[in-house]
């Protein structure tokens, strides 16, 4: 088995010590895995991802990354910070706040510049990533003038430019048209093939099978209720229903009214 990258033991987190967001999380993530975190709104997915990126720290319990316990203290060590930021990249749920430079180009090279990558190397990376994500025309534009899909691509590009070992993506396909969504999934899969560990949160059940080999389901109690292979999770309809991931829906086909569950799965089981 490959090395453990993240390890969480009994992790609790609450915002402002008043709003619980994670209540006792245990999990392990290994190098090269594709992990999906699914759950209804407000079940703590984004909070978990921020913990993994070392942006917030548990109230109780332990989170370890690369064998080191993550804490404010650990990040005070510049060498550790530099190493961690090079290894882990995070694409935020809201690209609006992730992009802060005056131009797309600057946003993409921000990470590598801060992390001391050489200018020649940055130039090559920039060109390659812009071509891969099909955003070469956007390089001189102001990020906040772009469409949601374009912003999301730029946000992903700005993280890919760091060439991290672990890529964390918070709902990367939300609000995208099918083609762009497809494109982004392909990029993520390619990164995984190249050996990168992928951690994704999503509501989009029909991408789960492809983007994950392990799925964690979060419940309204802000806990993991089930963990397993995508096929196993997707087959557990009662679980998905009780967690707002699919819903029962009545409608009409050829004048025959019938009911079946609907979710992002989309297809009719009996078709």
């Amino acid at each position: 088995m490959s090395e453990i990258i993240f390890e969480l033991k009994e992790v609790f987190y609450s915002y402002l010590s008043r709003f619980p967001a994670l209540c006792g999380i245990d999990l392990q993530i290994r190098k090269g895995e594709k992990i999906a975190v699914i759950g209804a709104n407000g079940t703590g997915k984004s909070t978990l991802l921020q913990l993994l990126d070392g942006l917030i720290f548990p109230d109780k319990g332990v989170i370890k990354a690369f064998g080191v316990e993550l804490s404010e203290k650990a990040f005070e060590d510049e060498a550790f910070s530099l190493d961690f930021r090079k290894k882990v990249g995070f694409v935020f749920q809201n690209p609006e706040v992730q992009l802060f430079c005056p131009s797309v180009k600057e946003d993409i090279i921000f990470g590598p510049l801060q992390l001391g990558v050489s200018p020649e190397l940055i130039k090559t990376r920039l060109a390659a990533i812009a071509a891969e994500l099909d955003i070469s025309e956007l390089l001189e534009r102001a990020p906040h003038h772009l469409s949601i899909g374009e912003k999301r691509k730029v946000a992903i590009a700005s993280v890919l430019a760091i060439e991290p070992e672990v890529i964390i993506l918070d709902e990367p396909t939300a609000g995208l048209d099918p083609l762009t969504s497809r494109h982004i999934i392909d990029i993520i899969l390619r990164a995984n093939k190249a050996g990168k560990t992928i951690i994704i949160s999503t509501h989009d059940l029909h991408i789960v099978e492809e983007i994950a080999d392990k799925v964690y389901v979060f419940s309204h109690e802000k806990k993991i209720v089930k963990c397993g292979a995508p096929a196993e999770i997707l087959a557990d309809v009662p679980l998905l229903q009780s967690n707002n991931l699919v819903h029962i829906h009545a409608h009409q086909h050829n004048n025959m009214i019938h009911t079946h569950q609907h979710g992002s799965l989309g297809h009719h089981p009996e078709d």
Binding site: D53, L82, G89, V97, L99, F100, F110, Q114
Partner: peptide
């Protein structure tokens, strides 16, 4: 959130600034 995004991408971690 913006502060998190800046931190996540390693702001000021490398001592000598280079330019492109």
């Amino acid at each position: 959130e913006l502060a998190g995004a800046i931190e996540s991408r390693g702001y000021r971690l490398y001592p000598r600034r280079t330019s492109l």
